Amino acid sequence: MDESVVVSPDWLAARLEDPQVRIVDVRDAWEYDGIGHVPGAVSVPFESYRDESDVDRGTLPGVDAFAELLTEAGVSPSDTVVAYDDMHGVFAARFVLTALEYGHDDVRLLDGDYSAWSREHETTSDEPAIEPTDYEADPLSRDESPLVGFDAVAEALERDAIFVDTRETHEFEEARLPGAVRFDWREVVDDETRRLKPEAELEELLADHGITRDREVVLYCNTARRISHTYVVLRALGYEDVAFYEGSLTEWMANDGEVVSGEVDD
């Protein structure tokens, strides 16, 4: 697993005193305050970097809003940022995707979540002293970004791309893109450890769904939250041809894109 994308609790524990490593807790503020957090972590709740008004694309918060958020969190563009939540990493993965899209070079997902961390490492209720920065975002260009829109998805349907739907079975059966395969984002997580399954097991699991390195992969769900986790996992495994449909099925259906429905063997 590529440590430039996903890091273990032990990796982070060894760097708690490193001033260049900034830890971001994306749980609700009451969890951060009331339950405790990783030492040195700053609170950046999920809703603070998600905007339903489509400021940029999909539910991205907008360049200025994200820069202000990281300024207040004391993050500099050169920092290594590690994000975590307590939901197997799905909300933290959305932070990772957002930071990457706005040009932060080094942002990583904590393997596991707060529950996994707290089993073996110290936690605290003390809030760190935060010195605001003057963060300037540098968004990826359309050519650099993995995010794709309606037209690009329509074109990919005409190619040999594999469309990966990370939603629940009932959602998938109600409406899905033509030819899509269902891959529940939680399949990559070990229920006991709350961490990602071993790399070999992940590769086999993906291959069983037809998700292989030689295929063009297009990810979608409803509003691009769940695919964030799958996207980060694929990047950590070294998959390169992965597109992220930010508008997902919400945008697709709003633009009268073709969908199919019906029960499937799951």
Rank of each mutant, 00 (worst) to 15 (best):
residue 2 D to C: 03
residue 42 V to I: 08
residue 170 H to P: 01
residue 25 D to L: 05
residue 104 H to N: 08
residue 248 S to H: 09
residue 76 S to F: 04
residue 247 G to A: 03
residue 107 V to D: 05
residue 219 L to Q: 05
residue 10 D to I: 10
residue 194 R to V: 09
residue 168 E to K: 12
residue 192 E to W: 01
residue 246 E to Q: 13
residue 41 A to G: 07
residue 86 D to H: 12
residue 119 R to V: 00
residue 180 A to G: 07
residue 247 G to P: 12
residue 63 V to C: 11
residue 172 F to G: 10
residue 154 A to H: 12
residue 37 H to L: 03
residue 71 T to K: 05
residue 63 V to A: 15
residue 82 V to W: 07
residue 97 L to A: 12
residue 8 S to V: 11
residue 251 E to G: 00
residue 21 V to C: 01
residue 226 R to F: 04
residue 186 R to L: 14
residue 58 G to V: 06
residue 265 D to I: 10
residue 15 R to I: 12
residue 115 S to K: 12
residue 226 R to L: 13
residue 147 L to G: 00
residue 181 V to H: 05
residue 88 H to Q: 10
residue 227 I to S: 05
residue 18 D to Y: 07
residue 74 G to W: 08
residue 32 Y to T: 03
residue 215 R to I: 05
residue 46 F to W: 13
residue 207 A to T: 13
residue 177 L to V: 13
residue 149 G to V: 08
residue 236 A to T: 13
residue 95 F to Y: 09
residue 217 V to P: 10
residue 191 D to C: 00
residue 196 L to Q: 02
residue 248 S to L: 07
residue 59 T to E: 05
residue 230 T to Y: 06
residue 181 V to M: 04
residue 146 P to Y: 01
residue 38 V to E: 10
residue 241 D to A: 07
residue 125 S to E: 13
residue 207 A to V: 10
residue 193 T to V: 06
residue 81 V to A: 06
residue 237 L to Q: 11
residue 44 V to A: 04
residue 66 F to I: 15
residue 204 E to C: 01
residue 158 E to N: 09
residue 72 E to D: 14
residue 111 D to R: 07
residue 149 G to D: 11
residue 72 E to I: 00
residue 1 M to H: 12
residue 137 A to C: 12
residue 50 R to F: 01
residue 254 A to E: 15
residue 65 A to P: 06
residue 216 E to D: 15
residue 189 V to R: 09
residue 204 E to D: 15
